[in-house]
Design a protein around this nucleic acid. Structure first.
Lengths: 201, 201
DNA sequence: TAATAATATTGACACGATGTCATATATAAA
DNA sequence: TTTATATATGACATCGTGTCAATATTATTA
């Protein structure tokens, strides 16, 4: 349709140049130190142009994070219908492992993201949505296991689910910061073992 | 000694006035929106004076947080020598409860602190020190329990300890943000139950 | 006591980042 | 070609920071 629209194409190109420049600057400087000036300079566009395409730094980062966030949602949506304690442990291990592996795979952008969470309530809300998605899923799974007599029914599934995700999340950030001293496998294996032994019958 | 030194007394008074004003501003505006200008205005002192007494916003907050941090260290130092699984659960519950109760008791300042952790690496390091103190203590306790045949020896005590603290810490921040929907007692009871069942024999 | 030294306070200033807006430029439509 | 519309631009106003030479206050010395 508007393939022939040079103006629109130019606009898209400008936007693209800015996004690429912004990514470079974010990775190099971190979220806080990154400035619009650095980005527009690197993209060879005018200062005001940045504000035509985005509302500011936060907006730019959110667009850059979108595919990473999408992958988190995919992990969160992994279905979970175990028939035994052992089967549960296997599935839970895989999910924890996949989750923590994301931290390693996307470390650079996640580092920027972590900084941004502390500064921008907009970005903080984005992460909160991911967190709630996971917790909702986990809690539902626990509930399912309880109904099937696999898990201790006396425990509040929401509280347990949050707690389990919290352990995973904090390990995620440690890995992102490169502050972990154990391998992703060992971490996933150990926390999963304590969790499933503590919850399942 | 220097009780007669009017200059020094005046200096201490100025510092005190600034600290009090800073606290008010921090609580009202949060860490990011709080400005030196607001503080010196409230304290009725000159702008440059603030920089004579403190290096900036971060420095001011750290001084204001010192007694709260001290109390965290006290909780972390609670000794832990259980003789049975049940005894362990009781002690661990108490510690978790005390930890989460701190969040409620110091909610206002902790909210400011949380924001500051995201922005200032200096303050972030302060919290990291508290975290490591807790984790070190917990890991040691696990190790002790393992040596006495109370806990599963095949688990890496450091990984388990970190994971356990992480659950507590995240619940702490939820409580600080007033985003929790379960009582401190229920949270402490539930996460302790899963943890001790998962770890102890 | 007066002069001098030491300490504490001050606000103007330079700097750097943000977001806006009137203007300029490039493209499309008439 | 002329007019209309979409994009791009950078100068500008605003705000917060941290510094520093100047000023005010208190102590010491002669």
């Amino acid at each position: 349709m508007t393939i022939e629209d040079k103006r629109h194409l130019r606009s898209i190109l400008t936007r693209q140049k800015l996004l690429e420049a912004a990514k470079e600057v974010f990775l190099q400087e971190g979220f806080q130190k990154a400035t619009i000036s650095q980005m527009i300079k690197k993209a060879n566009i005018g200062y005001g142009t940045a504000y035509v395409h985005f509302e500011g730094k936060e907006d730019l980062l959110i667009v850059l994070m979108e595919d990473v966030m999408e992958r988190f949602y995919e992990i969160a949506e992994i279905s979970f219908l175990p028939k035994s304690k052992q089967e549960a442990e296997e599935i839970i291990y895989k999910q924890a492992h996949a989750f923590l592996t994301m931290a390693e795979a996307e470390r650079a952008m996640m580092q920027v993201f972590e900084q941004a969470i502390g500064v921008s309530s907009f970005i903080s809300d984005k992460w909160k949505a991911i967190r709630e998605k996971f917790i909702q899923r986990i809690s539902k799974d626990i509930s399912f296991a309880q109904q099937n007599g696999l898990a201790r029914a006396e425990l509040n599934h929401k509280i347990v689910g949050r707690g389990w995700f919290f352990t995973n999340e904090m390990y995620l950030w440690e890995i992102v910061r490169n502050e972990h001293h154990a391998s992703v496998e060992d971490v996933a294996k150990t926390i999963t073992s304590v969790y499933t032994t503590g919850l399942y019958l």
